Simulated scan of single mutants.
Amino acid sequence: MLKKLFAEFFGTFWLVFGGCGSALFAAGVPNTGIGLLGVALAFGLTVLTMVYAVGHISGGHFNPAVSVGLMIGGRFPAKDLIPYIIAQLVGAIAAAGCLYIILNGAGAFSKEGAGAFATNFYDLPGYNNRSFSVGAAFLAEFLLTAFFLIVIMGATDKWANGKFAGIAIGLCLTLIHLISIPITNTSVNPARSTSQALFVGGTALSQLWLFWLAPILGGAVGGAIYKLLLQKDQNA
Score class of each variant (00 low, 15 high):
M1I: 10
F6L: 14
A7L: 09
F10G: 04
F10S: 06
W14S: 11
G19M: 08
C20M: 03
G21W: 03
G21K: 07
A23F: 05
L24Y: 03
L24N: 02
A27P: 04
V29I: 14
P30T: 09
N31T: 06
L36A: 08
L36T: 14
L36C: 06
G38F: 09
A40D: 02
A40K: 01
F43C: 01
F43H: 04
G44F: 02
T46S: 14
L48T: 10
L48D: 03
M50R: 03
M50S: 05
V51L: 15
Y52V: 09
G55P: 05
S58E: 07
G59D: 15
G60D: 11
F62S: 03
P64S: 11
P64D: 11
P64W: 12
A65M: 13
V68F: 15
M71R: 01
I72D: 10
G74R: 09
R75V: 05
K79D: 04
D80K: 13
I82V: 13
Y84K: 03
I85N: 03
I85E: 07
I85C: 09
I86F: 15
A87T: 11
Q88N: 10
L89T: 06
L89I: 15
V90P: 01
A95N: 00
A96H: 00
C98R: 04
Y100G: 00
I102T: 06
L103F: 04
N104I: 01
G105T: 02
G107C: 07
S110W: 09
K111M: 09
G115E: 15
F117E: 09
A118K: 01
T119D: 13
N120V: 15
Y122E: 03
D123Q: 12
G126S: 10
N128W: 13
F132P: 00
A136N: 05
F138Q: 02
L139G: 01
A140H: 01
E141C: 00
E141Q: 06
A146M: 15
F148Y: 15
L149H: 12
I150T: 12
M153Y: 13
M153N: 09
G154T: 11
G154S: 11
K158P: 00
N161M: 13
G162C: 05
K163Q: 07
A165H: 07
A165V: 06
I167H: 02
I167Y: 08
A168N: 05
I169E: 05
G170R: 06
L171E: 00
L175W: 06
L175R: 00
H177A: 10
S180N: 11
P182Y: 14
T184V: 09
T184Q: 05
P190L: 15
T194W: 04
V200T: 12
V200S: 05
G202D: 15
T203H: 04
A204M: 08
W209Y: 05
L210P: 00
I216T: 10
L217D: 14
G218L: 15
G218C: 14
V221R: 00
V221H: 02
G222N: 07
I225P: 01
K227W: 08
L228V: 13
L230D: 08
Q231F: 04
K232R: 14
N235L: 12
